[in-house]
Computed example of a mutant assay.
Amino acid sequence: MWDFGQISSRAGRLREVDVAVYTWVLRHRSLSADAAAAELGTSRQEVAESVQRLLDAHLVYRSPVDPAVGFARAPEAALARLSAPSEARIRQSQYQVALYEEELSSFRPSYEEHRPPDARAFEVIDTLEDVRATLNRASEDCRTEMISSQPGGGHRVPEAMQEAITRDRRLLERGVSIRTLYHHTARFHAPSQAYVAAASALGGQYRTAHALFGRLIVFDRASAFIPLQDESWGAVVIREPDTVGYLCDVFEQTWDSATPFVDAASEGLEQVSRQVNETILRLLATGLKDETVARRLGMSLRTVRRHIAEIMDELNATSRFQAGVTAALNGVVGASAPPEVEQRAP
């Protein structure tokens, strides 16, 4: 008898002749190899081998009264019979996993309470799956506030936005305060606009800034998530109070200087474009590379270079650095530069 494991290791077992024999059995309700061979114009041995393959695949079966009489099953019914052993094993495995989870969950409170402080202070999570699981647990445990900085908001796909609004709705309905920072470029992104409109209606608060300090999520000012610097999908969970407090201070200073989220069309495309150019000029004046500017502003490198070309043309500058310095000397930029983050004593 076949099961899924046997099928996968014997791929291509059923042959073209089996379809003809299956059809013949379906029409004649017989497993006679001689009669089928005569009508189909093939050898008796080939028909007999085909019948055996069809029996193994549960596509045909013998009459319990007369072995020469046979019936064909619908392919769906054959599949159900083939898959039944594997499905039973899957159910058993799922049941066993549920038992493990229930049994081991009673140890978590003790672990959380008594593990060494240094083990709780900084936790490195290497895989995206584990990061998501830890974020989900922190979200479920969150009771008062979630703050986050989400650079590059204009690049998030609609599916991610839908997942985010579902998660945030649960938090807001529990009375949790949500404040999120995005890059200004998110205001040009329709899915971001729709997400912010929906979440704002539920009580979430969203602001944008030209330059952000990086990706950050903080729950109840007790645990902070920041990305690993190796550009992987991993994260570091920080629970050390002073470090978490410092990250919250960084967020608050950026939040205070940020502007409420509005889509670019509402604010005026010309004004938004001017603000972007001024920020690029400030960064160019410090000698930053195009790639660094793009990363800080949450923009593509191609878009940044297009803005830079427009700026250089307008200022008659021959280099990026000259454009930044010329703009600063002429008072084009500088007055609205974002404040520096205050240094806090360790």
Results as ranks from 00 to 15, higher is better:
residue 176 V to Y: 03
residue 2 W to Y: 15
residue 3 D to P: 05
residue 25 V to C: 02
residue 38 A to R: 15
residue 197 A to E: 12
residue 283 L to D: 00
residue 344 R to F: 04
residue 109 P to M: 01
residue 265 A to Q: 12
residue 75 P to Q: 05
residue 137 R to K: 12
residue 97 V to A: 08
residue 253 Q to M: 12
residue 24 W to F: 11
residue 101 E to G: 10
residue 238 I to T: 03
residue 81 R to F: 05
residue 321 F to W: 07
residue 255 W to R: 04
residue 265 A to W: 10
residue 67 P to M: 00
residue 124 V to Q: 10
residue 122 F to M: 09
residue 77 A to K: 08
residue 141 D to S: 13
residue 161 M to K: 02
residue 33 A to S: 15
residue 329 L to D: 11
residue 304 V to N: 04
residue 309 A to I: 08
residue 295 R to F: 06
residue 346 P to A: 11
residue 299 M to T: 00
residue 122 F to T: 10
residue 62 R to Y: 06
residue 52 Q to S: 13
residue 127 T to L: 06
residue 180 T to R: 08
residue 28 H to M: 10
residue 108 R to N: 05
residue 52 Q to F: 08
residue 306 R to C: 06
residue 258 A to V: 01
residue 206 Y to D: 00
residue 299 M to W: 02
residue 171 L to V: 04
residue 216 L to Y: 04
residue 16 E to N: 06
residue 150 Q to F: 10
residue 295 R to T: 09
residue 312 M to Y: 01
residue 41 G to V: 03
residue 141 D to I: 02
residue 43 S to A: 07
residue 256 D to Y: 07
residue 281 L to M: 08
residue 61 Y to R: 14
residue 215 R to M: 08
residue 82 L to I: 15
residue 257 S to G: 05
residue 50 S to G: 04
residue 249 D to C: 08
residue 68 A to D: 12
residue 62 R to H: 09
residue 1 M to G: 14
residue 122 F to D: 04
residue 55 L to P: 04
residue 231 E to S: 14
residue 204 G to S: 11
residue 152 G to D: 01
residue 105 S to Q: 11
residue 225 F to C: 15
residue 145 E to I: 14
residue 253 Q to V: 12
residue 105 S to K: 10
residue 260 P to T: 03
residue 320 R to A: 10
residue 121 A to M: 02
residue 111 Y to F: 13
residue 330 N to V: 06
residue 317 A to M: 09
